[in-house]
C-alpha cells in the first residue's frame, strides 16, 4: 500500500509500485488536468509538484513517492497565485489549444516560486521542458512576465 498526500489530502493506493504517477492521478483519482503528451518526459504536459519540485508524472513510479507531497493543477486552482497566472495567461494570449497549458501553468508557478523576478532567458529556461506547438511560446513568456509583476510579493508565500 502506497500512501502520499495528493493536493493536501492523504491518499493510498494498491496500484503496483511501478505504475506511473500520471496514470494514478488520472485514472484512480480522476484528476484530468494532468495531461499525457508523450509519456517519456519530453513534453511537460504531465507536470506536477512532488515535494514542491516540478516533475514529469509520466516518469514517476508511484513506489518512489511514498510519503511525499504531490500537487496537481487541481491542487493550486484555488490559490491566489493561480488566479494571477490565469489572468496573465488570458491577457497575454498565452492559451491556444490548451493541451500544454496546465503543465505550463505548473512550470510557471514552479519558476516564479523559486525566482519571483525572472529575466526573459530565465523564463524560457523555466518552461523549456514544456512543449507548446501552438503559440511559439512568446505570448506564454509574456504571460509569465506579467504574472511576475502582477503577483509581486505573492510567489514565495506558502
Amino acid at each position: 500500500m502506497i500512501k502520499f498526500t495528493l493536493n493536501g489530502r492523504l491518499v493510498e493506493t494498491d496500484a503496483p509500485p511501478t505504475a506511473r504517477l500520471l496514470d494514478l492521478i488520472r485514472d484512480e483519482f480522476t484528476l484530468i488536468g494532468t495531461k499525457e503528451g508523450c509519456g517519456e518526459g519530453e513534453c511537460g504536459a504531465c507536470s506536477v509538484f512532488v515535494n514542491n519540485h516540478l516533475q514529469n508524472s509520466c516518469l514517476i513510479p508511484i513506489g518512489s513517492i511514498d510519503g511525499t507531497d504531490v500537487i496537481t493543477i487541481e491542487g493550486i486552482m484555488e490559490s491566489e497565485q493561480f488566479k494571477i497566472l490565469d489572468e496573465s495567461y488570458s491577457s497575454a494570449g498565452g492559451v491556444q489549444c490548451g493541451y500544454c497549458i496546465p503543465g505550463m501553468v505548473m512550470a510557471s508557478a514552479a519558476l516564479l516560486s523559486k525566482n519571483p523576478h525572472p529575466s526573459e532567458a530565465e523564463i524560457r529556461e523555466g518552461i523549456s521542458g514544456n512543449l507548446c506547438r501552438c503559440t511559439g511560446y512568446n505570448m506564454i513568456v509574456d504571460a509569465i512576465n506579467l504574472a511576475a509583476k502582477k503577483g509581486d510579493g505573492l510567489w514565495q508565500k506558502k
Binding site: 484530468i32 488536468g33 494532468t34 495531461k35 493543477i73 487541481e74 486552482m77 497566472l85 490565469d86 495567461y89 488570458s90 492559451v95 489549444c97 490548451g98 497549458i101 496546465p102 501553468v105
Partner: peptide, 8 residues
Amino acid sequence: HSGKVSGQ
C-alpha cells in the same frame, strides 16, 4: 480560456 488554464 478558463477550462483550458485549469485543465478541467
